[in-house]
Design a protein around this nucleic acid. Structure first.
Lengths: 188, 188
DNA sequence: GTCTATACAGCGATAGAC
DNA sequence: GTCTATCGCTGTATAGAC
């Protein structure tokens, strides 16, 4: 397997920093140090930090859609699919990171305006995907809940994003595990 | 009524900036400009930014406890108390702000370590308060839910924090209103 | 208690050699 | 494509006049 391009290494590194520190709390110098390159080399690939942020967001959003498709392709049952969805969040928490888009949402007031459409799309896509799963589960009787699938999807997403935030702050992975078990269990 | 001290004006201004931009995205210069004073005057009250942040967090945490006590003193019924709790969040959203501690939680990786105990306390206190309300509601039959009051309290808090984050990013207050109605309704 | 002035480090960004 | 060198700006923080 071919080793990663400098460009991808920069993106991976920047994403990690953004998810653990926030968008305004890491610098080109941090990336350069971690990768053992110079700041100017980063500017060669990403002229401005806005460019880097934009690509980071878009890559994350598209990558997540691929994960959602993968769950639908490989996991059977609405409840199992929801569990796998929560697992994606748990994996980021294990690296002491929160969702990149949760982080961007918290920084939205200090974010370049060009990024907000993509950020909104992220949340919209996730709610729609969750809504689809919820509806299917309700139809085949595997899931049961009051209210609309849409409102359930919104609550589900919000609880996971908030849970990730809080569990990370508490430094307690179990907080998130228990929470995600609870919200899935309540839908049965 | 006596007008506010410079110190309080600084705290109010800094809190607003912190809640809308994040802790690492506002400066002494921003505060100075907004208040029409000089940066050095802020340093007179808060020698370092860490000092300012620490006091901001503690003031917010203690102030919120007062709000919780006020709800218990003035609002009758578990369901109504929970609704009032969600209303506190909605009020911050109306100013395009999120919870100060939600913001700090997102920035926890870039936060001075001395602040994390107080931040953890905030979430712990809120879960405990919510748990108390949930339990009382279950006992008197006003609320009904599966699982423990503690896990319900955790889900409730996470959903509100996450909902606040997402609604603010979406620029759509209704997202939060609907969400908070859903989670309260599900407990009946 | 508030100001002017300034120090110093770090930031994003660019020019140009190799 | 990566480097060295450097610019201009902004950040936090301090010294000292008033």
């Amino acid at each position: 397997m071919q080793s990663k391009s400098t460009r991808d290494l920069i993106l991976d590194c920047a994403q990690g920093l953004a998810q653990s520190l926030g968008f305004n709390a890491f610098s080109y110098a941090d990336i350069a140090t971690e990768l053992g390159i110079r700041k100017a080399s980063i500017h060669y690939y990403f002229a401005s930090k806005h460019d880097l942020e934009a690509e980071l967001l878009e890559r994350y959003r598209v990558g997540f859609i691929a994960e959602l498709n993968s769950i639908e392709a490989n996991v059977v049952g609405s409840s199992n699919r929801l569990k796998h969805y929560t697992q994606l969040y748990l994996n980021t928490l294990k690296n002491n990171r929160i969702c990149l888009c949760g982080m961007m949402a918290s920084d939205v007031g200090a974010l370049p305006e060009e990024l907000t459409p993509s950020l909104k799309s992220f949340f919209k896509e996730h709610v729609e995907w969750l809504e689809k799963i919820m509806n299917a589960g309700k139809v085949d009787g595997e899931l049961s809940f009051a209210g609309s699938a849409q409102s359930q999807a919104n609550v589900f997403l919000a609880a996971l994003q908030g849970g990730l935030l809080i569990a990370n702050a508490m430094g307690d992975e179990a907080v998130f595990s228990k929470l995600s078990q609870s919200i899935v269990a309540q839908l049965k």
